[in-house]
Design a protein around this nucleic acid. Structure first.
Ligand SMILES: [Mn+2]
Ligand SMILES: [Mn+2]
Ligand SMILES: [Zn+2]
Ligand SMILES: [Zn+2]
Lengths: 141, 141
DNA sequence: GATTGGATCAAGAACTATTCTAATTATTTC
DNA sequence: GAAATAATTAGAATAGTTCTTGATCCAATC
């Protein structure tokens, strides 16, 4: 009776996402990020993923995260110089960092508004990526 | 005849800014950032400031930058995990990173628009700081 | 003008998130 | 199933930044 965790592909996960082969390790990293939407750091992913993959290494977690980011399966989120965090929400959104709780909340853009409405951009500017980060508190009304 | 550069206060700079004593080193760091608005890194500040202060150390540059940031005399700007950059523009503004030239441009907010107009913020949210970063190209029309 | 205490500075060590290297293992291709 | 390719692992290396410690500066007091 073998009780160890094999590197087998799980049935409830596609073989590939965006052209990236979903190995067992990548599956588990991705699964964790979709389950826990708390924007964990690489180290937090590493610690929590040991349950499913006891022999995984931190280097592999970094490798998986990088591969998933590169193939637009997840997003990397940075706050100042803090450790990078990772997010499985692919909708365009910003991040609100609640200083009280330390939690990070996804913030949607209102529909129908464009950045050009808000920012004084130089003419002929092609924006490829936008990052909006907010810091503050969710005041108890 | 002494030709070395003493740590004397320069006459064209106030003794204090926002309660921070403007030592010779802090003056030169601040002067550089107001003169060159290219958002240099700590290392770039270090290399360029040697002209005025040949004996300055990188640690002192970091100390000066941190003191100036802490006292809201300059702002620290981060792009992903690249080295921090520093900005003497205190107006609320975002940063557009031109991928073609590598240059960073300040981007003003249009007057009269608030973030609440654009973002779907949770109710009772007190925003203390906003960071907007754009990445793209200034297309030659 | 000397003394003194706190602030600042300099040099290098230490730290930490991340990346790299090299060896092993897994998967795909032939 | 052998060979080629890709992924994983453990640990070393890297780089930006911070810390530590001793020297220096400086403003206030004697
Ligand atoms: Mn991390
Ligand atoms: Mn820097
Ligand atoms: Zn998110
Ligand atoms: Zn700026």
């Amino acid at each position: 009776m073998k009780t160890d965790t094999p590197n087998n592909h799980q049935p409830d996960m596609p073989e590939e996402i965006n052209g990236l082969r979903m190995t067992r390790q990548r599956q588990e990293v991705y699964r964790l990020l979709t389950r826990e939407r708390t924007h964990p750091t690489a180290n937090e992913v590493f610690m929590r993923i040991k349950e499913a993959l006891p022999n995984v290494s931190l280097a592999t977690v970094y490798n998986c995260l990088e591969a998933l980011v590169q193939h637009n399966v997840i997003r990397q989120v940075n706050f100042d110089r803090e450790p990078s965090r990772y997010c499985s929400n692919l909708d365009e959104h910003g991040h609100f960092h609640d200083e009280k709780t330390g939690k990070i909340h996804d913030v949607k853009f209102k529909s129908g508004v464009s950045l050009a409405d808000v920012l004084d951009l130089p003419p002929n500017t092609v924006i490829k990526d936008v990052e909006i980060t907010l810091r503050g508190q969710l005041s108890a009304s």
